[in-house]
Amino acid sequence: MSTPTIPRRSWAQRYHVKGIGWTVLMLVLLVASAQMTGVNVGMFFSNLGQFTNLLVRMSNPAWDYTTVIIQPLLETIQMAILGTTIGAAFAIPFAVLSASNLIHNRWLRGLTRLFLDLVRTLPDLLLAAIFVAIFGIGSTAGVVTLAIFSFGMVSKLFYEVIETIDMGPLEALESVGATKITIIWYAVLPQILNQFISYFLYTLEINVRASTVLGYLGAGGIGVFLQRSLNEFNYNQTAVIILATLVVVLVIDGVSNHLRRVLL
C-alpha cells in the first residue's frame, strides 16, 4: 500500500496566522481604547463607598408611595407595548427585504440594510429629545421613540432569524406555482414565528427599562417620577420605583419564558 498523499497546507494555514492575528488585533484595540478613553479602574473601587452610601439611603422603601406610582407604571407598560408592537410590525417587511436567502437583488438588500443601520445608529435619548420637542412632554413622544428604537433592533434580529430557515419548503411552494407572498406566508412564517415572538418579548422587556430612562426627558411614564424622586433626594421613593420596575420586568420575563416553552 502506498502512503496516502495529504494535501499540503499553506504556510498561513499551518501556523493559524489568521486566528492569532485577529486575537492580537483585538487585544491591542482593547488596551488602546482603555488608554484613550481614560478608563480608570482604580477610581471605580475608591468611589465604591458613595455607592454603598446610596444603597443604605435606599434601604428603607416608602411603601405607601406604591399607590402613587401604579398609574405611571401602567402608562410605562402601555408605552412599551405600543412602541414595541408598532416597531415590530414595521420591522417585518424590512427584515424580509434584508434577508439574503429571500432577496437576491444585492442593491435592494444593501439599501435596506443601510437604512436599518442608520436607524440603529440614532441613540434613543436623542430620538426622545427630538420627539419631546415635536409632540411636547408626554407619552406620545415616548411611544414614537420606542417604536423607532424597536424597529431598528427587531428588524436586524428578525432578518438574522429568516436567514437560518430551511429553504426546502420554499422550493416546494415555488414548484407548486405559488406567488412570492404566498411562499413567505406558508413556508417562511411558520418557521420563524416562534423566534419572532420570543424576540418581540425580549424587546418589550428592554423597552420597559428604557422607558424609565426616557421619562427623564419628559417622554412620559414612570421615568418622570424616577427623576423627581432623585432630584428631591427622596431615595426611599426611588427604591420603590426601582423595585416596582423590577417586578414588571420579572413578570414579562416569566411570561416570555412560559410562552417560549409552550411555543417551541
Partner: peptide
C-alpha cells in the same frame, strides 16, 4: 408549475 408536481429527496414539508 401548477401542472407539474415536484417531489424532493428531503420531502420539503413545512415541519
Amino acid at each position: 408549475r401548477r401542472k407539474i408536481g415536484m417531489i424532493f429527496q428531503g420531502f420539503n414539508l413545512i415541519n
